[in-house]
Amino acid sequence: MTNVLVCIKRVPDVAGEVLLSEDGQSVDARHVGFTVSPHEECAVELATRVTSASGGTATVLSVGPADSAEQLRNAMAVGCSDAVLVEADTVQFGPADIAEAIADVVRTRAAAGTSYDLVLLGNDAADTGDFQVPVRLAYALDRPVLTGISTVELAGDRVVARGDGPDGTEIFELPLPAVIAVMEGGVSPRYPSIPGRMKAKRAPLETVTPDFEPKGSGRVRLTAPTPRVSTVEILGSGPSAAPAVVDLLLELGVVSK
């Protein structure tokens, strides 16, 4: 039996231009929906697979506003059995603070009898992209850590993880407990079924509040990059534009006669 904790972050689901709040401290998300990173969706999928193979439980956790319950319920609809919401205004939380908040939950639950053999996270958050929470968490818990991992499988009291390296697929074998940051590409996240959604509505969600002073993120302000003025030159419409395209390819030197 292997228990897995998987950590996800509620982020604005922006596809077009990003609007910023007036104080420049956050993304203005009044007119967009919310989501989690594809990396984290893959981490949830792996958590579900590992625990259904081992007979353990997959707990999903988020540090953030009360509305993060939406993302936690979505994860429970695809197989996580329970959730923890560390409710906090995280605008001024840095990656060390997030790691601390997660580590506190791991320690509290261990003291209450539930130990997490594996903590899965996304490789980098979709909004702040700090590339640090998994590593900082691992040191806080004194566990080994891997990042950039595509697949994980249990082999007794060890975990076998694979990820892309500069020379090919890198294979790691770690003793449990361990912390692993997952990257999109190794598994396809499943879609929630209707019974899954029903079950998720009633599944247990524990809310806790952090009891430490955050160190902060060092954020001074967010700014929007200078908007690009469109300078597009339309070469034509439809197949009749093909000669103009080939002229351009020759001019750019990407093909030669």
Binding site: R228, L235, G238, A241, V246
Partner: peptide, 24 residues
Amino acid sequence: MVTRAHYAVIGDLHEIVPAINAEL
């Protein structure tokens, strides 16, 4: 993608791409 591009061709890629291939 079009407004941010340097050059663009407007239309169905399934007509345009084969025409470019033939021209090339």
